[in-house]
């Protein structure tokens, strides 16, 4: 049985595509046949994060129109042969595909791939409904900010309403130093509020942006230093997806001295 997982968030720019690219890659590295599906029609960028943008010939739209076969649209990753991308069309709108068509496409993929990750667009409209239509599980991505958490909560409600009860939370872009100073919600705060099981905590890390620039997912990096804590966090999510119990990374900043703590005690509230 293949697993069909939608990566979604409500709010834009919180890291859905970053997660889809890295989790897809990490699953492939572990020997699974993985297809990542870009459901962000009109604003595709999963291809960019994977560095596959120059190799796209056909997209899901041509497949659905019968202009090419599904295999012809799949872009194989040369660095990781277990991974393929099904690109979205860039010159169409989100209404160019229907939930039924998405289900058909993904169903066809289940014949070959054991993991299918669907990268959802932001929002709760047609594009979102298309992305969740084939999914059996969901990864809800949020950052520890008020608007992102609010939107994530809305998404959890909509997933439930659409029969997706298996939803896990990824909290992205945690800034440990800010949490320690009570300037940002902690992982526990966010998880408590959203009340769905936590599967990953990814620190805010410049390495994520560098890897995006290069079109090389963080988890591809050969040495652990290059992958950084964010890369490790993403690999841990994949292990948890596969049922392993992996402790969450300790993201608390190094303990500071007595004076610093004393100063914090008397600082003006922010």
């Amino acid at each position: 049985m293949s697993r069909i997982i939608v990566v979604t968030s409500g709010k834009g720019g919180v890291g859905k595509t970053t997660c889809t690219a890295n989790l897809g890659m990490a699953l492939a590295q572990r020997g699974h046949k993985v297809a990542v599906v870009d459901a962000d029609f009109g604003l595709r960028n999963l291809d960019l994060l994977l560095g596959l943008e120059n190799r796209i010939v056909y997209t899901a739209v041509e497949v659905l129109a019968g202009e090419c076969r599904l295999e012809q649209a799949l872009v194989r990753d040369k660095r990781q042969p277990n991974l393929v991308l099904l690109p979205a069309a860039q010159n169409r709108t989100k209404d160019s595909v229907s939930p039924d068509q998405m289900r058909k496409l993904v169903n066809a993929l289940t014949k070959v791939f054991s993991y299918i990750l669907v990268d959802s667009p932001a929002g709760i409209e047609m594009g979102f409904l298309n992305a969740i239509a084939p999914a059996k599980e969901a990864l809800v991505v949020t950052t520890p900010e008020i608007s992102a958490v609010r939107d994530a909560d809305r998404i959890v409600g909509l997933l439930e309403a659409n029969g997706i009860r298996n939803a896990h939370l990824i909290i992205n872009r945690i800034k440990p130093a800010m949490v320690a100073q009570d300037k940002m919600m902690s992982v526990k705060d966010v998880q408590e509020i959203l009340a769905i099981p936590l599967i990953g905590v990814i620190p805010d890390d410049e390495k994520v942006i560098v890897s995006t620039n290069r079109g090389e997912p963080l988890v591809l990096a050969a040495d652990a230093n290059q992958r950084g804590l964010a890369g490790q966090a993403l690999q841990n999510i994949v292990r948890r997806l596969e049922g392993e119990t992996v402790p969450f990374l300790d993201l608390t900043p190094p303990a500071d001295d007595f004076l610093a703590r004393l100063r914090r005690l008397f600082r003006p509230t922010e």
């Binding site: 008020i146 958490v149 609010r150 909560d153 949490v179 009570d182 300037k183 509020i193 509230t269 922010e270």
Partner: peptide, 20 residues
Amino acid sequence: PKTSRETVKRRLQILLAHDR
């Protein structure tokens, strides 16, 4: 609430009870 972290958490709790 005192810190901005407490403030935002409190605001969210109220907001979400409303949203839900």
